[in-house]
Amino acid sequence: MSAHARIATRFTIGDRVVVANRTTLGHCRTPWYLRGRTGTVAEVQGGYHDPERLAYHKPGLPMQVLYKVRFLQSDLWRAYQGPASDHLEADIYESWLELAP
């Protein structure tokens, strides 16, 4: 389901955000390895139908804002071997994000 919508957004580009470190029953699009990690909002992708509801034949409402979040590889993996400038980006829905303290 696509065709993103313009809806109110909680975060803006440059915000430091933490991915919730929680478990969920059923389908979600937040990889385990990013839960509890801190990154920076790199892009606001717009509003999308909520995959956690779509997966169970619900309309996917309310819509969720999707953010591209950029993580430093050295923040994700203690033993990361590459240069400090290497990054990883993932698209994370707003309900999984909080402002970093």
């Binding site: 696509s2 993103h4 990889p31 698209d91």
Partner: peptide, 12 residues
């Protein structure tokens, strides 16, 4: 050169 991994986790 930076290596940047894109994990396509969602609608993109």
């Amino acid at each position: 050169t930076e290596v940047r991994v894109h994990d396509s986790t969602a609608d993109l």
